[in-house]
């Protein structure tokens, strides 16, 4: 077992974990952040995307021990009293049907907008290329990210 210290959505956690534990399992099973889903098990789908020290990562492709000393933000850390502007934009633009990909989409989109506050549609699509949605055909997702960008989500 290895001892790790991780900040998740602003709260500090100290835990003993097996080295083979994936970050996504740590978040869901130890910390209780079940807002982060497991999608594909092959690191293709991006549903489990979280921010690690501000950058998007696939939490199924990071060991919990590798997250030692980092700050993690999950979808559960996005709303601050009210929905985060990206969450609101996804709601208003109907950017989801089953919703399984949505936490990862929103985390990847937040990273994209942090780096590029006013992306073109092509840049939005490229920024979300690691996140699969099997329902929407992506059109409304791109629209939602554009709307959030116009609302100044990065500010």
């Amino acid at each position: 077992m290895a001892e790790i210290t991780v900040t998740v959505d602003g709260v500090n956690y100290e835990d003993h974990v097996e080295p083979r534990m994936l970050l996504v399992h740590y978040l869901r099973e130890i910390v209780g952040k079940t807002g982060t889903p497991i999608g594909c098990d092959t690191s293709n789908c991006g549903a489990c995307t979280v921010l690690m020290d501000g950058q998007s990562v696939k939490s199924c492709a990071v060991l919990a021990v590798q997250a030692d000393g980092t700050q993690i933000t999950t979808i559960e850390g996005m709303a601050n009293g009210a929905l985060h502007p990206l969450q609101r934009a996804f709601h208003e633009e109907h950017a989801l049907q089953c919703g399984y990909c949505t936490p990862g989409m929103i985390m990847a989109a937040s990273d994209l907008l942090r780096e590029n506050p006013h992306p073109t549609d092509t840049e939005i699509r490229e920024g979300l290329e690691g996140n699969l949605c099997r329902c929407t055909g992506y059109e409304n997702i791109v629209r939602a990210v554009r709307r959030a960008a116009q609302a100044g989500v990065s500010e």
Binding site: S43, G46, T49, M52, Q55, S56, V57, K58, A61, V62, A108, D111, L112, G127, E129, G130, N131
Partner: peptide, 9 residues
């Protein structure tokens, strides 16, 4: 290479 999240790591 892959996608932005993979390129971060």
């Amino acid at each position: 290479v892959a996608d932005p999240a993979v390129r971060h790591r």
